[in-house]
Each structure stands twice: as structure tokens, then as C-alpha cells.
């Protein structure tokens, strides 16, 4: 469970080009659900996702995560509360949360060019210092699962759009995070590939993941297995749908 209370995010504060991208959002997201943030371009969806995913800190307000979502994080002491407020944690802990708790699927996939599919997928595991053999086995399993087994040694720029998307998903899953965050995941995909993507998302939900997607693509927010659709407009939460 993720709880946002009165979260605001402004850019260039105190300067003439000051801009409030997220203005006072109260929101509770349940675990093991597919939630879609829906709204026009510039409404603040990406900003909201980056706040939830601990990539940026809110200007004011609090974001709390259920303790069990944080896994075996080194910085958590036994006596901690059932909920952990992440907004005030130091940068190092935020990095650790990003690494273990969230898997990110970016709009432009954000794969690193020039290195192989396998290496791209291994990247999130490097800071953990796990045994190479172990993580490599997991990467190969994931690649097989996403029908990328024969593309392991291919460079990412050789991939088709659908393959690149699946590599991005596999990378997000490498550290087995409980929450998957996807920003406009279907923006560069045709209808067929978008449908395949949503099928994968449904499968991940079946495995117990919590999924948060920002999109204004009807193929995403109108999909039957989406649990909750939240409308975002001008940095504010609007009406809800399902």
C-alpha cells in the first residue's frame, strides 16, 4: 500500500518560471492492483510517478510505503512502524528503495545502447553485489519468459519496438520488485504490441505485483483487468473510474 498525503511538487520555485506540477494530492494505492493514472499530456502524471517511485522528493506533503513492500532493506530497524515515510529519508536509502521496491518501465524504454540485451537486464543487479552466476540465471529465465532467449547477445539498438519493450520489462523485474511503475508504456507501440504489453501486465498482477501505469491510451486504461483509473488534470486528482 502506498499513501500520498497532500503531496505537492513545484519546479523552479521562487523564480519567474515557477510551476506547480502536482498540487496537493491525497491518494491511497492498494497492493496487488493495476492502477492507471489517466490524463492529458502535461497534467503531471510523470511527475507523480517519479514522486511515488522515490526518484524525486515532493516540495511538501508525505509519501508512505507499507513496510512489507520495502523488503530486507538494510536501513530498516526491527522496531519500525508498519508504514515507512519515505519523503524524509536520505538519498542513499531512496536509492536502495528504488532498487528493491520499484521496477521502472520508461516511456522511451531507456535501454543503454551499444551493450547487449543481457547486460542491460543485469544492470539493476550490479549494485547489489549478488553472485554473477545467480543473477545471470535469473536474467536468462526472464529472457526466456519474454521470448527473448535468442536475443541475449544482441545489442539493444538491433531490437524491434516490441522486443525493446519486453527487454525493458525484464529489466524492471530483475530485482523482483513488488511494485512496477510504467510511464506511457504503449506510446511507441502499435495496437497489437500494446495488447501484448497489457497481457504481460495482467500476468504480473497474477504474480502478486502492484502496478502503476501513467497513460492516456484507451488500450491501457480501458483494459478489462485494470482495477482503478485515476484521472489527473493540472496536477490534481480528478474523478475515478474502473
Amino acid at each position: 500500500m502506498i499513501r500520498l498525503s497532500n503531496v505537492r511538487k513545484g519546479f523552479n520555485l521562487g523564480r519567474p518560471n515557477e510551476f506547480i506540477a502536482v498540487g496537493g494530492v491525497d491518494l491511497t494505492l492498494e497492493g496487488n492492483r493495476i492502477t492507471v493514472l489517466k490524463g492529458p499530456s502535461g497534467s503531471g502524471k510523470t511527475t507523480l510517478l517519479s514522486l511515488i517511485g522515490c526518484m524525486a522528493r515532493p516540495t511538501s506533503g508525505r509519501i508512505s510505503l507499507l513496510r512489507s513492500l520495502l523488503g530486507h532493506n538494510g536501513f530498516l530497524k526491527d522496531g519500525d512502524m508498519p508504514e515507512v515515510e519515505v519523503t524524509s529519508l536520505p538519498e542513499r536509502f531512496l536509492t536502495e528503495i528504488r532498487r528493491r521496491t520499484f521496477g521502472f518501465i520508461f516511456q522511451q524504454f531507456n535501454l543503454i545502447k551499444g551493450i547487449t540485451v543481457l547486460e542491460n537486464i543485469l544492470l539493476p543487479t550490479y549494485p547489489l553485489g549478488k553472485k554473477h552466476r545467480v543473477v545471470r540465471k535469473r536474467a536468462e529465465e526472464l529472457l526466456d519468459m519474454f521470448a527473448l532467449g535468442d536475443r541475449t547477445a544482441a545489442r539493444v539498438e538491433w531490437l524491434s519496438g516490441g522486443e525493446a519493450q519486453r527487454v525493458a520489462i525484464a529489466r524492471a523485474l530483475m530485482n523482483d520488485p513488488p511494485i512496477i511503475i510504467a510511464d506511457e508504456p504503449t506510446a511507441h507501440l502499435d495496437s497489437k504490441l500494446s495488447g501484448e504489453f497489457m497481457d504481460i501486465i495482467a500476468r504480473l498482477k497474477g504474480q502478486g505485483k502492484t502496478i502503476i501505469i501513467a497513460s492516456h491510451d484507451p488500450l491501457v486504461f480501458a483494459a478489462p483487468f485494470v482495477d482503478r483509473v485515476i484521472a489527473v488534470r493540472d496536477g490534481m486528482i480528478g474523478g475515478e473510474g474502473a
Binding site: 536468462e140 532467449g149 535468442d150 536475443r151 541475449t152 547477445a153 544482441a154 538491433w158 524491434s160
Partner: peptide, 17 residues
């Protein structure tokens, strides 16, 4: 989409140094 057979072959080379 590029998927020449040779690439697929190299893709399976899983025992590299």
C-alpha cells in the same frame, strides 16, 4: 526487424568469459 541466423546463434552463446 533484424534477426539474421548468425545473430541468433551468437545469442545462444551463453558460456562466455
Amino acid at each position: 526487424m533484424i534477426s539474421s541466423p548468425s545473430l541468433k546463434m551468437s545469442g545462444k552463446a551463453r558460456l562466455s568469459v
